[in-house]
Design a protein around this nucleic acid. Structure first.
Lengths: 183, 183
DNA sequence: ACCTGAACACCGTTCAAGT
DNA sequence: ACCTGAACACCGTTCAAGT
């Protein structure tokens, strides 16, 4: 790769983080190209689709979430393990407005460019969930995909509201505990 | 109102239902005007904003959901009342793709044109929730806004997926029961 | 090889001109 | 009083022309 191409690529990712943070994942790609001081065609040359650009921006973050999840597996599980993990999931999926929507598409079986990165989280999360179920902390019939969808739904619903994070916390608590009276 | 104006208005609502069903609530307004055989300005004259058009389309449906909710109050509450009500909420909020997102904005305190219609559902739902809590069927510290947000989050997350309705059902079940083991 | 930016087909929204 | 549709400022995406 030519050095100017390499520099353009790096610059585009850098600017994409700013613009995605500001306007969300559906922000104008022309705007990103302009702010990066690059023709719009250059953006498309480096990133064939919006998904490809998004992936370049979030893949390392998702990898670190996977690492964190694996770390939780090393410690003996207690009553706060699941809560901590799900909080971390919400944090990551909430990095940019609109990200949760893309992740949901992957969870639904869509073959997005994000699928590989989400897969790591899913797999490590599944191991963690198994462990928690063996320890009797989580109901045995809960499935990892449903759990992730539900938590992601909370992120999706709260990501655009002011004070969304504490709101997400309340809903997460409700999900963990359940709505119906314990009998 | 002139008779041609009245006819145009009715026609626009009729077409909006079709187009919203097909493309979701963010569908092109120009497309709706064109299909209705009307200039784009005419659409804006009758409905000052997309929200206004959306409201014209869903307000009667939301009123009937409110009526249904009040009906549930007349019967003695049992273990299936809450489930039935939340299912009905999901059904209504899922009428068009993207509707749940607008409803969520209202639940968050936004002053949308849908607010009045959502208010009826909220108020009647609050009465139902109180009743269920008195009967000991639902945990006493569950709040109506949180419950509606959570259910709406499920709708939001599943509305665009194929087989979304059964998926929503699974997640609703998880919410009612809770994730953690009952102690 | 890589980049540029005009071009195309779309949006939402407004408003002068018509009836 | 109401309607039309061109006009404007935006999108995403492509591709001939440049270096």
């Amino acid at each position: 790769m030519r050095t100017d191409a390499k520099r353009n690529r790096a610059r585009l990712i850098e600017v994409a983080v700013q613009v995605f943070t500001e306007y969300g994942v559906d922000a104008s790609l022309n705007e990103i190209a302009k702010r990066a001081g690059v023709g719009s065609g250059t953006l498309y040359r480096h990133f064939a689709s919006r998904e490809a650009l998004l992936r370049a921006v979030v893949s390392e973050r998702f990898a670190s979430l996977t690492a964190y999840t694996r770390g939780l597996l090393d410690a003996p599980p207690d009553g706060t393990t699941l809560r901590s993990w799900l909080r971390a999931v919400i944090d990551h999926v909430t990095t940019f407005p609109g990200l949760a929507s893309s992740v949901m598409a992957v969870l639904d079986g869509g073959a997005s460019e994000l699928a590989a990165d989400c897969g790591g989280v899913r797999t490590s999360g599944e191991a963690l969930l198994d462990r928690l179920q063996e320890a009797g902390v989580v109901d045995g019939d809960v499935e990892i995909t449903d759990l992730l969808k539900l938590v992601n739904a909370i992120a999706l619903a709260t990501e655009r509201m002011p004070g969304g994070r504490p709101q997400a916390e309340r809903l997460l608590e409700l999900v963990l505990r359940g709505v119906e009276t314990r009998r």
